[in-house]
């Protein structure tokens, strides 16, 4: 295998796994941020602990979207498919990573706002839900575009 082939196939395989990897990194950071804020808030509230901790799981969904996109991209890597796999994997993975991290910040703010006004919990979570919406857009269009990359088969198994 030449250096050029190594690079092309390497990037192709990386593109397949990038949505899962970047989505997971984003979920780790987002859930950690939200979780730390929830732990802090526990020191300052007398009730509603479960709700605060439960909200911190919201940035987990990006990992699930990443796994599904990876399954859809999974195919035999060829020199025709590799550029598309890499570009799509990198871009959708980046979108998932960023949305998870910033969703974590939104949840942290919601947790903080809910401390003194528990009744605003639902409303305070709306910004986090909006950020989730953009992750869903990136996910759906990645699924659609993945069908146009050479080598794909229905169901996303290697062709």
């Amino acid at each position: 295998m030449t250096m050029e082939e190594f690079l092309i196939f390497g990037l192709g395989w990386a593109g397949i796994f990038l949505p899962t990897a970047l989505g997971a990194i984003g979920s780790i950071l987002g859930c950690a941020r939200a979780g730390q804020a929830a732990c802090g808030a526990l020191l300052d509230v007398e009730s509603g602990y479960g709700r605060l901790i439960g909200a911190t799981a919201l940035p987990s969904s990006q990992t699930i979207y990443g796994i599904v996109v990876t399954m859809q991209l999974n195919r035999t890597v060829t020199s025709e498919a590799a550029p598309g796999l890499f570009a799509l994997g990198l871009l959708v993975g980046s979108a998932l990573l960023l949305s998870a991290v910033l969703q974590g910040s939104c949840v942290a703010s919601a947790v903080n706002a809910t401390k003194t006004k528990p009744e605003v919990f639902g409303l305070a979570m709306v910004p986090a839900a909006i950020v989730e919406g953009f992750a869903v857009f990136a996910f759906i269009f990645a699924m659609i575009i993945a069908g146009g990359i050479p080598g794909g088969t229905p169901g996303g198994t290697p062709g």
Binding site: Q36, A37, A38, C39, G40, D44, T116
Partner: peptide, 12 residues
């Protein structure tokens, strides 16, 4: 340091 935890632990 988790400023998220520290600041969320302080009352408004």
């Amino acid at each position: 340091v988790s400023y998220y935890m520290l600041l969320a632990s302080l009352p408004h």
